[in-house]
């Protein structure tokens, strides 16, 4: 019981510090804008937050800001889920089959250093200006990260565990699904985390290049109408969404990988 209260108290300290740090940042921003010439370039935090909350009811373009955020989120969820599923399958496939590995590993090595957003022009040329190029960019960001992480994890599976499974009578064909995949899950999650950032960056960039809605569009419209407040409100929306998604991933990881955490 004592241990629990200590843990809870430590959590409270962490939360307190986080709130103090954020308020401190906003305070310095506010003071800098009010009392120095920075105020001519950047609006203050109160103005930005007022605009941000006002956009929940007053639409920017055709949609309110939460609708824009949900539009971006929907695009990410579609492209990302396909990317994760195919990425895990490709990574395991590459680790499990010498032929697959020989063909696809060099391809991935070449494609790997190309950032997700460099694909936007090609994606628009290939898929036109609708939803498809955005899905493609998001998919790609997730797929590349998840495939490479899954592959690396599956290649480094502990050989003694494979030996133990064989010794206990598991058939060769079942090893991939029952030993290699579960032992790779923590590293697959690492790939899913970086894949999610890549997808999220991809969708914002793609919306900035060609779109009629979404958070990226809100930001680029702010630039075109020289509306700094709107740009910053869009950035606030991105920060909030990013935080929520990262927290969601952590909760999911805590559930799926509880066995991986040391409890002493």
């Amino acid at each position: 019981m004592k241990k629990l209260t200590l843990e809870v108290r430590q959590n409270f300290i962490v939360i307190e510090y986080a709130i103090i740090a954020i308020l401190g940042f906003l305070g310095i921003w506010h003071i800098a804008v009010t009392f120095t010439s920075i105020g001519k370039l950047v609006p203050g935090p109160l103005q930005v937050l007022a605009y941000f909350f006002q956009s929940f009811v007053v639409p920017i373009g055709k949609n309110t800001i939460q609708e824009h955020a949900l539009i971006s989120l929907e695009r990410v969820l579609i492209g990302y889920s396909v990317g994760v599923v195919l990425g895990i399958a490709s990574g395991i496939g590459m680790a499990g089959s010498k032929l697959f590995e020989a063909i696809f590993k060099p391809l991935f090595e070449i494609i790997r250093p190309i950032p997700t957003i460099a694909w936007i022009p090609l994606a628009i040329l290939w898929f036109g200006i609708g939803e498809m190029p955005k899905y493609f960019i998001i998919f790609y960001g997730a797929y590349a990260n998840v495939t490479l992480n899954t592959y690396a994890a599956a290649k480094s599976v502990n050989p003694t565990l494979l030996g133990a499974a064989r010794m206990l009578g598991m058939k060769e064909k079942d090893l991939l699904l029952h030993i290699v995949l579960p032992s790779s899950i923590p590293q697959i999650f690492a790939g899913m985390q970086s894949g999610l950032s890549a997808s999220w960056m991809g969708v914002i960039a793609a919306e900035m290049v060609k779109s009629n809605n979404g958070i990226g569009w809100v930001i680029i419209m702010g630039q075109e109408s020289a509306n700094t407040v709107q740009i910053l409100a869009g950035m606030v929306a991105i920060a909030v969404m990013g935080f929520l998604m990262a927290s969601g991933m952590r909760i999911l990881e805590g559930r799926l990988c509880s066995w991986n955490q040391k409890k002493i």
Binding site: T160, A164, A165, R166, L168, N260
Partner: peptide
């Protein structure tokens, strides 16, 4: 290797994603 010849390892080598029950019934 096969289940007629079981091994207990120095490195223990349990399946970390399975519970005690999951490991024993494997």
């Amino acid at each position: 290797p096969g289940p007629q010849r079981a091994v207990v390892y120095q490195s223990i080598s349990l399946f970390p994603w399975l519970t005690v029950m999951g490991n024993v019934e494997f």
